[in-house]
Design a protein around this nucleic acid. Structure first.
Lengths: 183, 183
DNA sequence: CGAGAGGTGTACCGATCTGTTCACGTTTTT
DNA sequence: AAAAACGTGAACAGATCGGTACACCTCTCG
């Protein structure tokens, strides 16, 4: 019961924070839009920061699961999967509510390195890097770590520019670069 | 007189917004830290939004001037300048107060496409793209427009990851990619 | 001198923020 | 059926937000 309400709260708060921003979204709005009273919210989370951290944990899980699965569905070789990532990103960019990377925005709003939100946001990027490194190693790249970091740069650049330009073109442009680098 | 105070206000407000964020920086703090009374601020700018737009205009001018000049100082061929951009970015990343791209953060905080701040933030990226395109054309790239957009993706990816990882390594990694793409 | 422009500091307005309190229902368990 | 657990709505506290009002100071210039 309690866990259900808690999970429902986190799940419904996610799009709120994603679309309105963290600071700009008040707890009264969270209560109203999630259907969970403010009293209950503060029974599950001591502060707004704890709720945001929980939301980011869910987002990390959802996003990485979605991306990895999509990469596997679109290609079966390691190199093919790395390239397919940019096709998956393109699909994401074309979604109506696309607003950029939630972790980049979290790090932008809570930019002190000592902030737990900032740290958790970067952790998401580190987890992506681990996965990319494994794929690069399986693809027998000369320097898997370096190639993985480069793929991450391409991914982040495409995400930021797609958000700012309201276009999915950066996905294809990043993919073109990845193709030449992985060749 | 008036213009001096106004310029001084914008100049001193810039690092405040850059380090604290736009929403998180209150007008009382702006008045206190810039040395310009709130009464005077609101004589020059009708709203906080207008002040932010003025700050972003100054930042655009300062940053583009600095980057273009640094690229010219470090190399004399068009291709060399494009590569030198990543060395210049590395210098920026190593500066003590580095906090990422102010325009990306502005677009993240004011993410509605109809928001004037969002529009002005993207305009900065468009101006960079114009410059890159001219350099790519001078470097006799096969497709100057596409190559310029790719260089912009590399630049934005490096900026975001340098900010999140508190490291200057993305500059060298992006440069390595640019070298292979421009070869 | 005297007027006006440009500036300051402070107090204030109404709204909104995070977080708490309290009295009250509803459901589950014993 | 009694009791504990879980939930609600609404009011509230204290702080802060963007923005305004007002009295005052200090120059410059005629």
């Amino acid at each position: 019961m309690s866990q259900n309400k808690r999970a429902e709260l986190i799940r419904n708060a996610l799009p709120l924070f994603y679309r309105n921003g963290f600071t700009a979204t008040g707890m009264d709005l969270v209560a109203k839009e999630t259907g969970v009273s403010k009293t209950s919210i503060y029974k599950h989370f001591r502060t707004k920061e704890e709720l945001i951290l929980a939301v980011l944990r869910l987002r990390d899980e959802n996003f990485r699961n979605w991306l990895y699965r999509r990469m596997e569905d679109l290609a079966d070789t390691p190199k093919g999967q790395l390239l397919a990532m940019f096709d998956a990103l393109g699909e994401w960019f074309r979604e109506p509510g696309y607003q950029g990377c939630m972790f980049v925005k979290a790090a932008a709003e809570f930019q002190q390195a000592s902030d737990p939100i900032n740290q958790q946001a970067y952790q998401h990027k580190e987890l992506l890097l681990v996965h990319f490194t494994a794929l690069c190693r399986a693809a027998e790249c000369a320097d898997p770590e370096a190639m993985a970091r480069q793929m991450l740069i391409l991914k982040e650049g495409a995400i930021v520019l797609a958000a700012m330009s309201h276009s999915d073109a950066p996905a294809a442009e990043a993919k073109a670069m990845a193709e030449r680098l992985l060749a």
